[in-house]
Design a protein around this nucleic acid. Structure first.
Lengths: 199, 199
DNA sequence: GTCTATACTCTGATAGAC
DNA sequence: GTCTATCAGAGTATAGAC
């Protein structure tokens, strides 16, 4: 098998194992098995467990913020931005439902590792705040601080993914029902937010 | 030193280390150091690392849901309940800001361990749904499903605690400013929700 | 109950043949 | 590039003295 394929297979396997077990919980042996290769090869390609983790994490983290940034600077009204960001987030996370817990876990056990990716993202909430102030002044929405609006929206989008077992149990949903619940949240969240910021 | 004191000191130290490092990341040596005792004593009191973790986790998990349950069955209108639950949650978590990440982490790496505590909690959202339907029928609030309202509220309360490094960086807050931000969220969340469910 | 010393296991990492 | 075999270190757990 050629080099590139092997490397990609390792990364794929590593991503799955690290995401479900975390850095400390993951075993190089398990990653090797999952990739259908040998433990020694992992070190041949990535030198150490930590470097392999870094490779996985940078890939994941690198995809987190660009979408957000794109929305913030887009030429859209607040309502359209809200509509857009909720859809993008739910779709993105829905395709990789364990990413949020993985990120939060890394964020808490290893904050330094994370900071550079946040900085690289170059998200500037100032433009959003200005837009909010503008639209509020014109009576299109009520006034609200960007740091509350953004956090509220993202919280509502992400939370059901890592609290899944709790929610599913408390509301007695089976897997299928939970899938439907997640889908229903798209319009629910948008509706919830728009009603809240209406004048 | 007497038995009880030592056991409590071990539990305290174990709680701190497990919460910041997770089950796999924690070291028995570190727990022993933190407790000011010897590694062997940990095993004398708790037999194994896993049993020690279980002791810590059951204590933490056992305190999570009772508050929520109490609010659900209280004799209060929806608006008062919302007001109440936000305050209770923010206060409770504020005193132990790393609990949410710890729980989410355990929840994802070891779901089985969690399920029994959820079941024990005996939270019944049916009563809340009935109350919502009632108040909506009387035109006091708009209609909304309990599984959206509850998840939205809790998400907004908890999220800032485990996303702290991200939020703090994106909005360029220092530690003091972040403390003020967390405090300001109490009234912001209540306001945000009440405006959203107004008729 | 508490300690020191040590046994044992697991696992990340390397050496070296092919 | 890929494998088998092995090392070295870390970390949990136990034995046994006090």
């Amino acid at each position: 098998m050629n080099t590139e394929t092997t490397e990609l297979q390792i990364l794929k396997a590593a991503r799955e194992v690290f995401i479900s077990k975390g850095l400390e919980g993951a075993r190089m042996q398990e990653i090797a098995d999952q990739a259908g290769i040998n433990k020694a090869l992992l070190h041949y390609y990535f030198r150490s467990k930590d470097k392999l983790f870094e490779a996985v994490f940078s890939e994941v983290a690198g995809n987190l913020f660009p979408a957000m940034r794109q929305v913030l600077v887009a030429e859209l009204g607040i309502r359209e931005k809200i509509n857009f960001v909720v859809k993008i987030y739910l779709k993105g996370i829905g395709e990789n439902p364990f990413i949020p817990a993985f990120v939060i876990n890394t964020l808490n056990t290893n904050p330094e590792r994370f900071l550079k990716y946040i900085k690289e993202a170059g998200i500037n909430p100032g433009v959003l705040q200005k837009q909010i102030d503008d639209e509020a002044a014109h009576g299109l929405i009520r006034h609200i601080k960007a740091e509350h609006l953004m956090v509220n929206i993202i919280a509502m989008c992400i939370f059901p993914f890592f609290a899944r077992p709790i929610i599913q149990n408390v509301f007695a949903m089976n897997d299928q029902e939970y899938g439907a619940y997640l889908e229903s949240r798209e319009s629910e969240i948008i509706d919830f937010v728009l009603k809240s910021i209406a004048v």
